[in-house]
């Protein structure tokens, strides 16, 4: 009984360890005044993980990917010098059996977090470049 109880506890703990923090990707990434034109940066960043960037007539950005049977659409909201990823839809494509068509939220969270990391990486580079430029101008 004791062994069974400890087994259940360890399974619960390991599941919580593996689980992604819900919407960890959704926190805004600030870029302040260091990035004057965000579009080329977004284009470059999303392509790193094979996402494609779409800009509509109103100037809003969308990132889209079809990967491992998932079709994920997101909006990249550029507001007050920040970029935020907003999940619009995630559906399964090309699945034939019912049991294979289930959405794995953890996978989606992981890919969205990876997209955020790609964006944050290029923003980090841009901020570093901007700060170096500023420090050279000051000195």
């Amino acid at each position: 009984m004791k062994k069974l109880f400890s087994l259940v506890i360890s399974i619960v703990i390991s599941c919580s360890v593996l689980a992604y923090e819900i919407d960890a990707y959704a926190k805004a990434i600030p870029f302040y005044h260091y990035v004057s034109d965000i579009e080329p940066l977004l284009e470059k960043s999303v392509q790193r993980n094979h996402w494609s960037l779409v800009k509509d007539e109103q100037g809003l950005f969308y990132a889209h990917i079809v990967h491992k049977g998932y079709d994920i659409k997101t909006a990249l909201l550029v507001v007050d010098n920040t970029v935020t990823i907003k999940l619009l839809s995630s559906i399964r494509v090309g699945c034939t059996k019912v049991q294979q068509c289930k959405l794995d939220e953890e996978k989606i969270q992981g890919w969205l977090l990876r997209l955020r990391k790609a964006l944050a990486y290029d923003i980090t580079l841009a901020v570093r470049k901007g700060l170096l430029k500023e420090s050279v101008l000051v000195s």
Partner: peptide, 15 residues
């Protein structure tokens, strides 16, 4: 941050 061993640390804001 970017040259840290292993996984990179990324810019999240400043003050």
């Amino acid at each position: 941050m970017l040259s840290t061993k292993g996984y990179k640390w990324l810019f999240e804001g400043e003050g």
